[in-house]
Design a protein around this nucleic acid. Structure first.
Lengths: 148, 148
DNA sequence: CCGCTATCGACAGGACCCTGTCGATAGCGG
DNA sequence: CCGCTATCGACAGGGTCCTGTCGATAGCGG
C-alpha cells in the first residue's frame, strides 16, 4: 500500500502463510491416500499415533496435537465404534477414562509404518537435510511466536 | 524401525509435516481473530481476497486457492447471502457467472488490510528475511514435489 | 452439424474441527 | 470439611472442506 514504507518481512510472512495453507491441504490428501487402503483417514491416523505415544486421556491427546478436546473426542468416539480404540477406567481421575489402542489398531499402525517411511524418505531425499532442518526450526519459531 | 538403514530425510520431513499441521491450525485461529471484528472468518476473508485478485468464476477461485469447486461454492453462497459478493452473467461461459465484490466487501477488505499488515510485519520482523525466503522456497518445492 | 469429452454449478452426504455450554469431578486454600 | 476454581467428558450447533453425482454447457475432432 505504501511503497515508501519499508516492509519488515510482512510480505514474506504472508507468502509463507499461503504456502502453509496450501501445503496443509496437500499433505492431508497425501496422508489420506497413504492410509485409505487400511480404512483410515489422516485425522484418525494421527490420533491413533498420538494415543500410541501418549496412551492416556482425550484431553492429553488434544493438548499434544494442538486440537480441542471436542475434536479429539469425536474422532475417538468413531475409532471406538470401529474397534480401534478401547477405554478403561482411570484410577487417577474418574472423569477421564484412559484411551488405548486395540490389537487391531496396533496391527494397522504397524502395517502403515513402512509405507509411511518409504513415502517420507522418498519425499525427503529430494532436499538437503540442512535445509529441511532450517525450515523445521523456522516454522517452530513461528509457531512459538504465534502463541505470544 | 531399521537402525542400520540410513534415513534420507524422512524423519525431518515428518517433523516438518507436523509443524505445518500445527501452524495451519494456529494461523487459522490467528486469522479468525484478526477479522472477527469485521464479521469475517479466515476462510471467507481468503475467498474475498482471491476474488479481489482473480475477479472471476468459482472454478477459477478454487484452482487458485487449491480448493475444490464445491468448497468455494459454499463460501461464495454465504458471502452472497451476506451481501459481500455479487454475481453477473458470464458472456464467455453461460454456466459460470462472474463473481465480484460488492462495495461493502471492498470497504471491509480495506479496513482489514492495515491490521493485517501490522500483524504480518510484527510477526515477520522477528525473523531474518533470508530465512523466511528460504522457508518459502522450500515449502513451495515440497508442494511441487507432492503434485508429482 | 454431430458426437465425445471436459468442465461448469448444483445437490447430497459425510468428515473434521470449532465455540459455547453443561454437570461432574479434582484439587486447591481456608 | 467447605467453597472456589480448573478441568474433565458430553451435547448442541455451526463452519469448512471433501467425494460422488447430476444435468447443462463448452469446445473439440470429425
Amino acid at each position: 500500500m505504501d511503497q515508501h514504507h519499508r516492509d519488515t518481512g510482512g510480505d514474506l510472512i504472508t507468502a509463507l502463510i499461503d504456502e502453509v495453507f496450501q501445503l496443509n491441504g496437500k499433505l492431508l490428501r497425501a496422508g489420506d491416500g497413504l492410509v485409505a487402503e487400511f480404512g483410515l483417514t489422516s485425522a484418525r491416523w494421527q490420533i491413533l499415533g498420538a494415543i500410541d505415544r501418549d496412551g492416556t486421556t482425550v484431553a492429553q491427546i488434544a493438548r499434544h496435537r494442538g486440537l480441542r478436546r471436542q475434536s479429539v473426542r469425536e474422532i475417538v468416539t468413531r475409532l471406538r465404534a470401529d474397534g480401534l480404540v478401547a477405554v478403561r477406567a482411570n484410577p487417577d481421575d474418574r472423569r477421564s477414562p484412559l484411551v488405548s489402542l486395540t490389537p487391531r489398531a496396533h496391527e494397522m499402525l504397524a502395517a502403515v509404518r513402512p509405507a509411511q517411511a518409504r513415502w517420507a524418505n522418498g519425499l525427503g531425499s529430494t532436499f538437503p537435510p540442512g535445509r529441511l532442518a532450517d525450515a523445521v526450526r523456522l516454522l517452530a519459531a513461528l509457531r512459538a511466536a504465534l502463541d505470544a
